[in-house]
């Protein structure tokens, strides 16, 4: 092997090792800039009835536990819809597959939005950061946007998305649908089959503007 080839191999190996480094170690600024440019949302629908109960006054309770037990719970009289500690099993290579209703109630009583951000030490996993409840027109806005979007399967998970969200639609006495969303996701457009992006604005931002 020539010295030139050896240098090349060494340089490439050194460069490749940076792929595994935490984003904020080398590319903090560049990464933030890249994410700021992104404005895409990917959605996947997972069918799910979480709970059935009566809805009365609603309170939000944050409970921070140990690893894997962090939960933010929205509790109503007899109804509890919880934000899981992670949006999905991190072992899953694909974000999710559609296996639920394609349409939700256009006027849900409430929508619980669980927001996740990448772990700083392990960007391949997500941690619960916040939960927000939407009601009235804000909830209807989210439902309307979801209902007007196309569906495709499988939905891919984009690991460099800004954050992920779970939306729990609650109507009447039950949680009727669970939607997995990626806000500010990575975009690419080379494949007509899989590059489907539902360009949702962040429902929280949108909701704030609407209310």
């Amino acid at each position: 092997m020539s010295k030139e080839e050896e240098l090349l191999r060494r340089g490439l190996t050194a460069a490749a090792s940076r792929a595994a480094a935490p984003p904020d170690l080398f590319d903090k600024v560049a990464g933030a800039r890249t994410r700021a440019r992104r404005n895409r949302t990917r959605l996947a629908v997972a069918g799910g009835t979480l709970a059935v109960a009566a809805v009365a006054t609603v309170t939000a309770v944050a409970t921070l536990g140990g690893s894997g037990t962090t939960q933010v719970t929205t509790a109503a009289a007899g109804l509890t819809a919880s934000c899981p500690a992670t949006p999905a099993d991190p072992q899953h290579a694909l974000f999710n597959a559609w296996r639920g209703p394609t349409r939700v109630d256009p006027a849900p009583r409430r929508v619980l939005v669980c927001s996740y951000v990448p772990h700083t030490t392990n960007p391949l996993t997500w941690r619960l950061a916040a939960s927000t409840e939407l009601t009235g027109p804000r909830a209807a806005t989210v439902a309307g946007r979801f209902n007007s979007a196309p569906t495709a399967d499988p939905r891919q998970r984009c690991l460099s998305a800004g954050h992920e969200e779970l939306w729990f639609f609650m109507t009447g006495t039950s949680t009727t649908a669970e939607v997995r969303a990626q806000i500010g996701g990575c975009g690419y457009a080379d494949d007509g089959t899989h590059a489907v992006s539902w360009r949702y604005p962040d429902p929280l931002t949108e909701g704030s503007a609407a209310s």
Binding site: T34, Q156, R157, L159, S160, H194
Partner: peptide, 11 residues
């Protein structure tokens, strides 16, 4: 680019 690399792999 790290983000693009992740996208590439995921795609």
């Amino acid at each position: 680019d790290r983000d693009a690399a992740e996208d590439l792999v995921q795609t």
